[in-house]
Design a binder for these strands. Structure first.
Length: 931
DNA sequence: GCAAGGTC
């Protein structure tokens, strides 16, 4: 059997169909992985890297004394499967193979992925020959050629990739840990550092610094308007920008009629047709029609997976000769672009346009399948973009007729330029940029015109613009940062780390602080040249000029030097970062004492507290961090002069909360409404006195409140009492909701909050209320019969348990009672101590103690007391009766028969009804006992 | 809990 291993499932599938020719391909799924069989061949796809480089065991604790961040530099590394199902399946099939062909992508990373597969195969099959197929596109020609002339894996090429993996891991992990620990950041708030992300962040920070330090300078521009037979001509002064006001004024004053035409030049300008799409140019074009980089790539992936466009991750801007452009046109004839295709066929340029980069892995992005607008929905826009771009690359250049008029106004020179599209060319099929004509009338040299209007405008120089996502991706590509597949992900990562935000992108305080610290103490990692040097080293490995281990060792030495600088400065770095980022958590002046309010986090909870604590207890609660971590936004509340707050969670849109104090006040209104004595006037008085919450109010002493609000003693007393009652109600409801959540799963239209509100309407406010509520009232809120019953039963059991605990039954015993089925105090009190002791395994004396506690609390008569001695001897007596074993003993205990005497005295008729023993059986036992 | 690189 011949095993073919491709980089991804979709490639394995297409390769199988091409190689099978007329044979049928049978597709099977094994553990969720597709396997394609045809003839004696099996084709299977990886999922990119199926193993990952990581440190050997023992380095997981970031705070380990023996293994500080620096120790990662020399830590051993291993390859660990990240896709165990695929790994196992490949190995299972490889055992039976008599030939293996690695058919991963034709680039460095593809070679490494291929080598990983090679190692997986070798681990289970030492003999099977393994070869390598190299192809630049999955087309019939390319695949057949690649498989008819197989080569070997290029281990040097793969080694270059491995060097990159290890270097990235040790630099990234050690520096990430060091900086995070220095700034005391943990959990979801770590400060990451990496060869690609850190220089990218630094670019954004540098740009921001340029903008911050930019000093605008004034300049002046002069323009005039004239006309020829009513057709306007707009002209500007030939000197362009005047930086000197006096010169500008003089030129303005000197501009006088007559205006004489000194030059009239007509020309032609070629407007080149665009080049084929690589990933970057695709993202740029998608950004123009409103897509973020990540969104554009997500849609492209979807279009690719469904066969509408070719592989979207490519650096290639030159169509390879093996790509049949003619047949793509034929395909597109079946779409609504038939008209455009016909135009292209008629006007086709001799050779398609070419960009500067060609690569071996994939062709430029082009359409591969027929789609309709209805079929694709929103995604249609990007499919259309790819189709139109493809058509444009086969279309002729556009042409413009240009015109330039030079004029003289008493010694001042003016210029007017115009243009007109004469040959629309590619613009016919690619209408994404506007082609605007500015048409000038025809004039002759020496002709005299009249100045209609003259303007002197003062302007200011502008700072450089912030980066848009697509601009940043272009610059990253120029600097060699990241790859076609990862650039947009790097930007997303910087956003999710809260290093950058907004559109266009700007750094946060954290982003700036981390960049500053790294630039000061570990500048290597913030510079794009680290990537360039690494790439040079990789090139050397590819041609055997250097070894993989040599390159990694050199890199280790450099990283040690970086730590020599970092470690002595750890405290300073921590201070710098924490000091700068403090500001980000500061919300504004405390309305009570005027000191700063800050967002504070503790475990899973967060709140806004006052820097004046404990003197000032002003405090605003926030939703838990599971809803997102709280950060301040740019907006400021006009009433309270506080920054707005928003909650940021992974993979969700930020939750804008607005001004936290406004929120708090709004919330309290709802609570105040539950207080019978609360009035609007009183609420205003509370606000004026800076008492913002029910909680604050409840904590007041009566006398203090009288002074603060200027109300009567009586009223103060009443509202403090009411505040406490409402608080208590809120507490009970929250406890009740928490309880209900355990047993009632949320459903569409039945959130826990909604159920709880429904309960409140029926007067169910605590767990005890659930225990006594009717099933009907529970079901009113959308609970099923079963859910209502479970909830009620659980509530009853919990109440009983709490009751027992209050009575004084220790937790250990309580558990035993519950396990034995004694759920409530009543159930225990109504059972015989011998029976309880037997069922629970609690000693008879302890049961006696518990029973007296219970009966006392229930106001029942004291229970029967049995000493340990009496219990033991009674048991011996009963067990000596022939036919009495453990189970009969239990039945006897259940009706209070625990020794010979109580057996003989028992009322057999009564005992038979509850013990499960027959009257005859009991009578027989009595007879034996008497004897 | 960390990187960057594949792919989903």
């Amino acid at each position: 059997m011949h095993l073919i291993i491709a980089e991804k499932n979709i490639a394995a599938n297409r390769i199988a169909h091409i190689l099978s020719g007329k044979d049928k391909v049978s597709a099977k799924k094994e553990g969720g992985v597709n396997v394609y069989n045809f003839g004696d061949k099996t084709s299977i796809g990886l999922r990119g890297h199926v193993v990952e480089v990581d440190f050997v065991e023992g380095y997981t604790n970031w705070r380990s004394q023996e293994r500080p961040p620096r120790s990662l530099i020399d830590a051993g590394t291993i390859k660990r499967p990240t896709e165990p199902t695929i790994v196992k399946l490949i190995q299972k099939i490889a055992k039976k193979a008599n030939r293996v062909t690695i058919a991963t992508d034709f680039d460095t990373e593809g070679e490494l992925i291929g080598k990983e597969a090679y190692e997986l195969v070798r681990a289970v099959n030492q003999k099977v020959p393994i070869d390598r197929a190299r192809f630049s596109a999955i087309t019939k020609e390319e695949i057949n050629r690649a498989f008819s002339e197989p080569t070997d894996i290029d281990f040097d090429l793969a080694a270059a990739g491995e060097a990159r993996q290890v270097v990235d891991l040790i630099w990234g992990a050690s520096l990430t840990r060091f900086i995070s620990l220095a700034a005391k950041r943990g959990g979801g708030n770590i400060l990451s550092v990496g060869r690609v992300q850190s220089p990218t962040l630094a670019m954004i920070v540098d740009r921001e610094r340029e903008i911050e330090s930019f000093i605008p300078e004034p300049y002046w521009e002069i323009s005039l308007v004239t006309d020829k037979d009513g057709q306007p001509i707009n002209a500007r002064h030939a000197a362009g920008r005047f930086t000197d006001k006096k010169e500008a004024d003089a030129a303005y004053a000197g501009t006088k009629d007559p205006l004489i035409v000194t030059e009239m030049k007509e020309g032609k300008r070629v407007d080149r047709a665009p080049t084929p799409f690589d990933t970057t140019q695709f993202i740029v074009a998608a950004a123009r029609i409103g897509y973020s980089a990540a969104n554009a790539m997500r849609v492209a992936e979807e279009l690719y997976m469904n066969g509408f466009i070719s592989y979207p991750r490519t650096d290639n801007t030159i169509y390879p000769p093996s790509l049949n452009l003619e047949s793509i046109l034929t395909t597109l004839e079946k779409t609504q672009f038939a008209h455009d295709v016909a135009w292209v066929r008629k006007n086709k340029r001799s050779k398609p346009t070419e960009g500067k980069k060609s690569s071996t892995d994939h062709p430029p992005i082009h359409p591969t399948g027929v789609a309709t607008q209805e079929q694709l929905g929103e995604n249609w826009k990007l499919y259309e973009l790819v189709v139109r771009r493809f058509l444009a690359t086969l279309s002729p250049d556009a042409e413009w007729a240009t015109m330039r008029i030079g004029m003289d106004a008493s010694g001042q020179n003016y210029i007017s330029t115009g243009s007109r599209l004469t040959e629309p060319g590619w613009r016919t099929v690619y209408p994404y940029s506007e082609a605007k004509d500015s048409i000038l009338p025809v004039v002759k040299t020496g002709e005299k015109l009249k100045i209609q209007d003259l303007n002197l405008e003062e302007k200011q120089t502008q700072p450089p613009p912030r980066y848009s996502q697509s601009k940043l991706i272009q610059v990253m590509e120029e600097l060699g940062l990241g790859t076609k597949s990862t650039r947009h992900e790097v930007i997303q990562k910087l956003i999710s780390r809260k290093y950058i935000e907004g559109n266009p992108l700007r750094p946060t305080l954290v982003g700036k602080a981390v960049t500053d610290s790294l630039e000061a103490h570990a500048s290597t990692i913030t510079r794009p040249d680290m990537t360039q040097k690494l790439e040079q080293a990789m090139e050397a490995i590819k041609i055997k000029d250097k070894s993989r281990d040599g390159v990694v060792d050199d890199s280790r030495k450099m990283l040690h030097q970086v730590f020599d600088e970092l470690e002595p400065n750890e405290a300073v770095i921590g201070q710098e970062i924490m000091g700068q980022t403090d500001e980000e958590l500061t919300i504004g002046p405390c309305p009570v004492c005027g000191k700063d309010l800050r967002i504070r986090r503790k475990g899973g909870s967060q709140f806004i507290g006052c820097n004046g604590y404990p003197d000032c207890t002003c405090n605003i609660s926030l939703p838990g961090t599971m809803w997102g971590s709280a950060v301040r936004t740019k907006n400021v509340c006009e009433i309270h002069n506080l920054f707005h707050v928003s909650l940021i969670a992974k993979g969700a849109r930020p939750w804008e909360m607005g001004c936290p104090l406004c929120q708090l006040i709004e919330q309290q209104k709802e609570h105040y409404a539950k207080m019978p004595s609360m009035t609007g006037e009183l609420q205003q008085k509370l606000l004026d006195a800076k008492i913002f919450s029910l909680y604050d109010l409840s904590k007041f002493e009566q006398g203090d409140l009288v002074k603060k609000l200027g109300i009567t003693k009586k009223l103060a007393e009443i509202i403090i009492k009411e505040a406490n009652e409402v608080l208590d109600l809120i507490r009970r409801r929250s406890e009740c909701k928490k309880f209900m959540k355990q047993f009632v799963p949320p459903k569409r239209g039945r959130s826990h909050t909604k159920v709880m509100n429904g309960f409140a309407e029926s007067g169910i406010n605590c767990i005890g209320d659930i225990a006594t509520a009717t099933l009907e009232s529970l079901k009113k809120t959308g609970l099923s019969d079963e859910e209502a019953k479970t909830l009620k039963d659980e509530a009853i059991s919990l109440i009983a348990k709490n009751h027992l605990r209050e009575i004084g039954i220790p937790a250990v015993s309580l558990k035993r009672y519950q396990e034995a089925g004694f759920l409530s105090p009543e159930e225990i009190a109504s059972s015989h101590p011998a029976f309880i002791s037997l069922k629970t395994g609690i000693s008879i004396e302890t049961v006696g103690k518990h029973l007296s506690l219970i009966t006392q609390s229930l106001g029942k008569p004291d229970p029967v007391k049995i000493s340990k001695k009496a219990f033991e001897s009674g048991k011996a007596e009963l067990m000596s009766i022939p036919g009495v074993g453990e189970s009969t003993l239990e039945q006897l205990y259940s009706v209070g028969i625990f020794d010979k005497k109580s057996l003989i005295g028992a009322d057999t008729a009564k005992a038979a009804t509850t013990s499960g023993l027959s009257k005859d059986h009991l009578k027989k036992l009595q007879v034996t006992a008497r004897a």
